[in-house]
Design a protein around this nucleic acid. Structure first.
Lengths: 157, 157
DNA sequence: CTTGAAAAACGTGATGT
DNA sequence: ACATCACGTTTTTCAAG
């Protein structure tokens, strides 16, 4: 429980932080180019990344896909106040439903906050309707996204 | 305006969809292995990916970094009802502040919904306090994240 | 548009500092 | 913990189907 991974602080020195920033911008750069940017050779970069992966600092390398181009034209946030005993049903729904992009348990009057994608308004309505039996929902549609996928810097950098 | 990219529908056939799914799970797989999974040779895979990139379907390849391991122990959602004339100030704040991970313009009484990361409660309080002059805020803390980074399937797949 | 083969570039392991 | 070198693999390019 708690601290799962050995937290080697040396991994987050100046070199480590610049590597993480570079990898968030482009995860497919050759090790040699990463090394050129941070002042290491390619094998040294590879070993640092390997250590960052086992430490759980790097969780994976993912392609970023354009939601709109794939047909998910709408995004929405739904907060839901679970009806008694429906919490686990909501979590299962979130895990099993392709339209649910994120599900967070939150403080306050609502139990969960869900980020949802849909092809159109009818589609979105279907998802929200499916949620209705599980709790009281409040939905807002995303009109435009101003910031998303920002590069994560180490705290206090 | 609107449709920026030539939307070649052939890119989202069965093979294209499986490639996108694979790349979302691991963006650093060799082309040959991707090809083995979808039934293409390595150069054919490379060519399809190149087309998907210029079509804007693939926006980039990003390392997924563990926020908690980097010191961002807390996450929160803040919805804010902008004071008159403060909308652009909020958007600038969101763009320039490292703690703001996402910023969406939304429907309803609130103007924006922000996803925020912080090292601790004091840190979070500083960010929310900085937002206070720009609008009326409602904040909820994330207690646990049940779903995040789900693989995006094509609509109706 | 896809395939197959060649050349160039890359990743990985061993060795030494 | 990093640099250097060597080897196997991968990416890339190009000619051809």
């Amino acid at each position: 429980m708690g601290a799962k991974h050995a937290m080697d602080p040396d991994l987050l020195d100046e070199v480590g932080r610049r590597l993480l920033a570079e990898l968030q911008e482009d995860a497919r750069q050759p090790y040699a180019e990463l090394g050129r940017k941070v002042g290491l050779t390619a094998p040294a970069v590879a070993e640092r990344l390997r250590r960052m992966e086992v430490a759980g600092l790097i969780q994976g390398y993912r392609a970023q896909v354009n939601r709109s181009a794939m047909g998910w034209k709408l995004a929405a946030f739904v907060r839901i106040r679970a009806f008694p005993g429906q919490d686990s049903a909501i979590e299962r729904f979130a895990a099993d439903t392709a339209e649910v992009l994120e599900c967070h348990e939150v403080t306050g009057e609502d139990s969960y906050l869900l980020k949802i994608a849909a092809a159109n308004v009818q589609h979105l309505d279907r998802v929200i309707t499916a949620l209705a039996p599980l709790g009281a929902t409040h939905s807002v549609l995303v009109l435009s996204t101003k910031v998303e996928g920002k590069i994560l810097a180490p705290v206090g950098a």
